[in-house]
Design a protein around this nucleic acid. Structure first.
Lengths: 156, 156
DNA sequence: ATGCCAACTTAGATTATGTCTAAGGTGAGA
DNA sequence: TCTCACCTTAGACATAATCTAAGTTGGCAT
């Protein structure tokens, strides 16, 4: 997506297209691996050292409120973001914690009975299991290369 | 579930049934509202002041690793826990952020094609929308009583 | 029975993540 | 050209989680 399109997207929601905001939005649209706020900050701050941490967080919040970006639900402590393009499901690896996108397919909503007066906007699937890299190992060595540290209580 | 049953559950996974661990497990089995680690600590520490914060976190991690407890995926920053009893889906309110359980119903796994070599353990639904309390309001006042603070950049 | 050792607990320090404060910059429209 | 709302910023602060180093406990080998 080109610059003008991003600008339009932002302005359509009432947000000014500042250089900082543009940079954050543009980064998110180019990275579909659910970066954390810290990762986004590191990347955009390297690209443009003017961009401060507070601004990164402010802009992420603004973009989420505007509906241009979503905060994905994960077990980790750091919030992860995703420029809402096409909808997709998520796969979370039990062993390495990695989160991957799974192509969208519609899922059945619970019965009206189970939902009561709740109003449903969307239904997303969280699939758990072993990712392509971890599946062959099954339950051998505890953790693969880059992952959640997970250093249990290794004690002394 | 009585004390002996909890003890057996713990010992079946190789964990000692210490008073502290028992207290944490027992609390989680009695509360199905996805308490945060901080809430769990506050509750168990009040019940038994010997129980320290580090121990609460250590035990939660041990229980999760043992598969007796799960850490639920949420957008919030604090991890939330759930004693794995019967499976259920989750509903997250867009407006107040509350997470509620939805009775289980089986959901279709994605096609083998979309999954590749991944091994699926379970599929959980995350349903988003407006909860019973928030639905009537639709998009009127920004937030209900007890919720995510959400105090945007209110500035000066 | 005793001593060992791994599992466990603990208080407090430390790290990681996110938010707030107070000040200043920017630009569209009066 | 003034103004005011919107925006950015550095750094202080708050919150959530983990680590450290020391002590406790209990099963078990001797």
């Amino acid at each position: 997506m080109d610059a003008a399109a991003i600008r339009e997207k932002l302005e359509a929601t009432g947000l000014r297209c500042t250089p900082q905001r543009y940079t954050v939005m543009s980064f998110l649209m180019a990275h579909h691996d659910h970066p954390t706020a810290a990762e986004i900050f590191a990347a955009v701050n390297t690209a443009d050292p003017r961009l401060s941490r507070a601004t990164t967080y402010n802009n992420l919040r603004d973009l989420v409120e505007a509906g241009l970006v979503r905060e994905v639900a994960t077990e980790g402590r750091a919030a992860r973001y995703d420029a809402t393009g096409e909808q997709h499901h998520h796969f979370i690896c039990d062993r390495c914690g990695k989160m991957e996108d799974i192509p969208w397919h519609p899922v059945p909503s619970p019965t009206a009975n189970a939902l009561g007066k709740r109003v449903v906007r969307e239904c997303e699937l969280i699939i758990r299991g072993l990712c392509t890299q971890c599946a062959p190992h099954r339950r051998t060595t505890p953790k693969p290369p880059t992952s959640k540290p997970s250093n249990h209580r290794s004690h002394n």
